[in-house]
C-alpha cells in the first residue's frame, strides 16, 4: 500500500504544480515528473510497453515539443505576460465534470474484479510469448492481429497531423532555388533604380 500512496502523492502534487506553475517551463518539469510516476504505475500494472511509450512518446516527444515552443516563443526567462487567470469559476465547473467522471468510473470499479497477482515465475512474462498478459509480445499480437483497424486509423490520424503541422507552422512561401531568387532580387533592384531615375 505504501508505494501506492507515495506514487499517488507524487502524481497529485506534480499535477497541481503543472496547473499552478507561474512559468510554463515549471509546468513542463512537473509534468515530466508526473509522467515518470505514471510510467512507474503502468509498469506495476503490467503495462510494460505502455510504460516505455509513456516515456518515449509523452516525455521524449510531446513534452519536448512544449519545451521547444517555450524556447521559441519566450526566449527570456520572464513568463509570458498574460491577464489574470479565471480562477473562481474554474474549480466549480471542473468539479462538476470530474464528479460525473468519478461516478462513472466508480460504477465501473464496482463491477471490476480485484487485482489479482498473475501467477508466473517471471512477473512480466516471457519475452515474445503472446500469452502472458502485459508482455510486449502479447501487446504486439493484440495490436497487429485483433486490433489492426484502430491501429491503422491512428496511423492515418498521425499522418494527417504531420501534414497539418507542416502546413500550419511551415514556411508557406513558395520554394524558389537560391540562384533564381538572387536573380529575381537583382532584377527587382535594377527596376527600382530605373524607376527612381538614378
Amino acid at each position: 500500500m505504501i508505494p501506492f500512496w507515495i506514487i499517488a502523492a507524487v502524481l497529485i502534487v506534480s499535477a497541481l504544480w503543472t496547473v499552478t506553475a507561474r512559468k510554463p517551463i515549471y509546468s513542463v518539469v512537473s509534468l515530466l515528473l508526473n509522467f515518470a510516476a505514471l510510467a512507474t504505475t503502468y509498469l506495476i500494472l503490467h503495462a510494460e510497453f505502455l510504460a516505455v511509450m509513456q516515456i518515449i512518446v509523452y516525455s521524449g516527444a510531446i513534452l519536448m515539443l512544449f519545451v521547444f515552443v517555450i524556447a521559441l516563443l519566450n526566449s527570456g526567462i520572464a513568463a509570458v505576460v498574460l491577464g489574470r487567470d479565471r480562477v473562481p469559476v474554474a474549480p466549480a465547473a471542473a468539479a462538476a465534470l470530474a464528479a460525473v467522471a468519478f461516478v462513472a468510473t466508480a460504477i465501473a470499479a464496482a463491477h471490476a474484479p480485484a487485482i489479482a497477482p498473475i501467477a508466473t515465475h517471471s512477473p512480466l512474462g516471457a519475452v515474445g510469448r503472446g500469452n502472458v498478459f502485459g508482455s510486449i509480445g502479447d501487446f504486439g499480437q493484440a495490436l497487429f492481429l485483433s486490433r489492426l483497424l484502430p491501429f491503422e486509423i491512428t496511423a492515418l490520424i498521425l499522418m494527417v497531423a504531420v501534414v497539418g503541422v507542416v502546413l500550419l507552422a511551415g514556411d508557406l512561401t513558395p520554394y524558389v532555388p537560391t540562384r533564381r531568387r538572387a536573380e529575381q532580387t537583382r532584377r527587382a533592384l535594377r527596376e527600382a533604380i530605373l524607376r527612381e531615375g538614378k
Partner: peptide, 29 residues
C-alpha cells in the same frame, strides 16, 4: 530487462531535457 532496448530509448529521450532545460534556464542567448 526484457524490454531493454525500449528502456534504452526511453532514457535517452529524457536525456535531451538536460540540454534543452539547461540552455533555456541560463537566460542568455
Amino acid at each position: 530487462v526484457n524490454a531493454g532496448i525500449l528502456f534504452l530509448m526511453a532514457i535517452s529521450s529524457i536525456g535531451v531535457y538536460g540540454i534543452s532545460l539547461g540552455g533555456w534556464a541560463s537566460g542568455s542567448k
